[in-house]
Design a protein around this nucleic acid. Structure first.
Length: 158
DNA sequence: ACCAACCCATCCT
DNA sequence: AGGATGGGTTGGT
């Protein structure tokens, strides 16, 4: 897979740090948590404004429903999982196992697909938890990355 | 192109 | 604690 230099076209400030946006012909393709220094030297382009506005709304109102066009690039299985994630409303959570059952797969495979999610927050992988415990986030089961999952869940009332 | 081995944000006993 | 699990990735041929 091409590890092409990721270029952020917009930056959104948020309570959990700056968020970098990558777009592809006006559609959101990737979202990443970035460092403050990275944020400083990233210009924002006009087409990022719609995404930016909606993220700001979400951070002030966790019930905000995103209405954005997304570019989801992944294997067929990953896309199936991600499309399921989008159906989970704010305030609700599901488990890796339940999702796996719905898809006729296994819990660990679902976890793998969640980890590969290119658009966290908007594709709400944080709403998938383990049957026992919270599971992980961005490849981690503890630490600052994982804390973001806890923050998002708390933001949504958990 | 295939295959084996290895990695996991799990789950059950 | 240990085993089953299935999708992805990597490295070999």
């Amino acid at each position: 897979m091409a590890k092409s230099e990721e270029r952020f076209l917009g930056i959104v400030p948020s309570p959990i740090g700056p968020i970098g946006l990558s777009l592809q012909s006006d559609k959101l393709r990737a979202l990443e948590f970035v460092s403050a220094s990275r944020a400083l030297r990233t210009p924002a382009i006009a087409s990022a404004k719609k995404v930016s506005r909606q993220l700001v709304k979400y951070f002030s109102n966790p019930k905000h429903i995103f209405d954005l066009e997304l570019v989801l690039e992944g294997t067929p299985f990953q896309k199936k999982v991600w499309r399921e994630l989008i159906k989970i409303p704010a305030g609700k959570v599901t488990t890796y196992g339940d999702l796996a059952e719905k898809l006729g797969s296994s819990a660990r495979a679902v976890g793998n697909a969640c980890r590969a999610n290119p658009i966290p927050i908007i594709v709400p992988c944080h709403r998938v938890i383990a049957r026992s415990g919270l599971g992980g986030y961005m490849g981690k089961t503890s630490g600052s990355k994982f804390d973001i999952k806890c923050w998002l869940l708390a933001h949504e009332g958990h």
